[in-house]
């Protein structure tokens, strides 16, 4: 099939960017979206032009590196699918595809489709862990955890940290990302001792990074390649409220 691509090209963080049009002819419907970009890049290289830079690594939907907004939808039109797992058979001959980086103030574009998502790392650094020293863990089965609790933690823990939730949100909020990590740990007995501190610190770090507020539209959950539920946001809100009240009284 033949496609027309309108791709965001930007040299680096400080340069202005713009959409540039490319022909993508003879695209095999069995290609993945990134393989289609590989082919376009090979052609650009043969014409002595700069290939389109994009983040990618595992190409099986788990590392969370790939990130592109296709015709306005982060990771493209297929539900629960990362760009690397999106195949060209979902498009048709003659389609015009606008391909942009994930847009958010906290995710500056560093080249073409690549953005800097280190703000996510800083959020996890602020409290997305259980403080346990290597070697000091008790025997694993001394702490039975109900199956449904473990399953719910696993649902939250499936997050791949790609940032599509932020890109889909009109406020560029990172609430789904933060909620997923906080809910995984707060729901488990291992994570309970640090529960309050965790939500306060992670939310503070999220705000500091420049992410917006959540207004409960749930675009985040709709584009999430792992279908992480918006229910976790409600849980985070409750836990945040409780933790801030406790903090206020503790100070007085």
């Amino acid at each position: 099939m033949d496609l027309t691509l309108r791709v965001w090209r930007q040299k680096d963080r400080n340069s202005p960017g713009r959409l540039v049009e490319y022909d993508a002819k003879d695209i095999d419907p069995d290609m993945s979206f990134l393989e289609m970009l590989d082919v376009v890049n090979e052609r650009l290289i043969s014409r002595e032009e700069h290939p389109i830079a994009f983040d990618h690594d595992c190409r099986e939907g788990i590392c969370g590196a790939c990130s592109a907004t296709i015709n306005g939808i982060p990771h493209g039109p297929e539900r629960a699918t990362t760009v690397c797992q999106l195949h060209m058979r979902h498009f048709k001959d003659g389609d015009v595809l606008t391909i942009e980086p994930f847009r958010a103030r906290a995710f500056p574009v560093i080249r073409d489709l690549m953005v800097d998502r280190s703000a996510f790392d800083r959020i996890v650094e602020s409290g997305g862990y259980v403080s346990v020293r290597t070697g000091s863990a008790p025997e694993a089965n001394t702490l039975p955890i109900p199956k449904d609790v473990a399953e719910r933690a696993m649902d939250a823990a499936s997050c791949i940290g790609c940032g599509a939730c932020v890109a889909a949100c009109k406020n560029a909020s990172a609430m789904l990302f933060v909620a997923a990590k906080a809910s995984q740990l707060n729901g488990l007995p291992q994570g309970k001792p640090e529960k309050d501190r965790r939500v306060l610190d992670m939310v503070a770090s999220m705000d500091e990074a420049g992410f917006g507020n959540c207004t409960n539209q749930y675009e985040c959950s709709a584009v999430c390649p792992k279908s992480i539920s918006e229910d976790f946001i409600a849980q985070l809100n409750r836990e945040y409220l409780v933790a801030s009240i406790k903090q206020r009284f503790a100070r007085k």
């Binding site: 473990a150 933690a153 823990a157 488990l188």
Partner: peptide, 17 residues
């Protein structure tokens, strides 16, 4: 033991183990 203490959500049986 270490991974469980970190909050890795390993699969569990109904008894919680």
């Amino acid at each position: 033991d270490q991974c469980t203490a970190q909050g890795v959500p390993f699969a569990r049986e109904y008894g919680g183990h």
